[in-house]
Design a protein around this nucleic acid. Structure first.
Lengths: 165, 165
DNA sequence: TTTTTAACTTGCATTTTGCAAGTGACTTGG
DNA sequence: CCAAGTCACTTGCAAAATGCAAGTTAAAAA
């Protein structure tokens, strides 16, 4: 019986996270799903950072293997696939948020509106992210592709996210 | 006047974080500094993940260039250098914490004691990290290399961290 | 003064990334 | 119902990053 190589370099939880997400692209894909509602291969290609198609395919495969996203086929169009965050995937919201807050504090970045929204009430922001995700889980087969807004504030994440990319 | 290439692929704060920290090693080095109090080249080499010397040298250089760590020479020994987290570096504690919590929740990892400590009172944990960092800033030239403990709880991070690696 | 120690650097093989072009299943417009 | 898209990839190849082992340099210890 062949001894399979260990899953991780070490059992440290931080190391586990890094082995799954420690590259330049994975969390950007998750950002697009989480904040912009991206679900299609083409939508990911549209982001400002310009990921290559082969890398995107590879990352989607890996994220699927890790249980962070899952893939469905679109019943209304045999060519299309739908990529969705799993519960494990949406649980990355706090990680993503802290990374945005850190860079927002220490680097000159765009989209300070998003940073301020996160700073103003982090908990509410995270709840909004999760709520929108739930909505899209249950009502995903509606005709409209519109992503529901968060809360009732004057500047919801939808607006802020437009400038994230 | 030559046009220098832009600092980042995009102005997104998440992307900025990823360009600085999005690899398999940088955050592990920061973990060792933050939780174990590592300050020397050799100490980083001792971690369980076994980073190579050339990669370590490269990451220390980059982290320095980003202002996340700084390097001092040891006045008592001309061979030795001391690597320390800057304020920008210690501000990564929440990022690191959320990554540990995420993996702790979704993967079978070691050191669940640390995970539980973070879960029990995240705010207090973060304050403890920062407090210990401050101590080491001001009292770093004491004879003792002992890292002060956090708070007064029965299981301080010092103990938990021993098993993190 | 020889030996050790600390912090690297160098050389080289392997792996990963990035870019451009191509492919195949499916849908749409005429 | 057929040609022309569209979608989600794959392939080939060059360039960059990573990993491993061995070597280097300056300073300290024996």
């Amino acid at each position: 019986m062949a001894k399979r190589k260990p899953k991780w370099r070490s059992g440290c939880p931080l190391n586990a996270s890094l082995e799954m997400l420690g590259d330049r692209w994975s969390l950007l894909i998750i950002r697009d799903m989480m904040l912009l509602g991206s679900q299609r291969f083409k939508e990911f290609l549209g982001s400002h950072e310009r990921i290559a198609t082969n890398i995107l395919a590879d990352r989607l495969r890996k994220l699927g293997a890790y249980g962070i996203i899952r893939t469905e086929s679109d019943p209304s169009d045999g060519r299309k696939l739908i990529y969705r965050l799993t519960p494990k995937g949406i649980d990355l919201a706090p990680v993503l948020t802290e990374m945005v807050l850190w860079a927002g504090r220490h680097e000159k970045t765009e989209n300070q509106a998003l940073v301020r929204l996160m700073e103003k009430d982090k908990q509410k922001f995270l709840e909004g992210i999760r709520e929108r995700w739930k909505q899209n889980q249950t009502h995903w087969n509606r005709s409209s592709k519109l992503i529901p807004r968060l809360g009732g504030g004057s500047l919801g994440p939808s607006e802020a996210h437009q400038r994230l990319i």
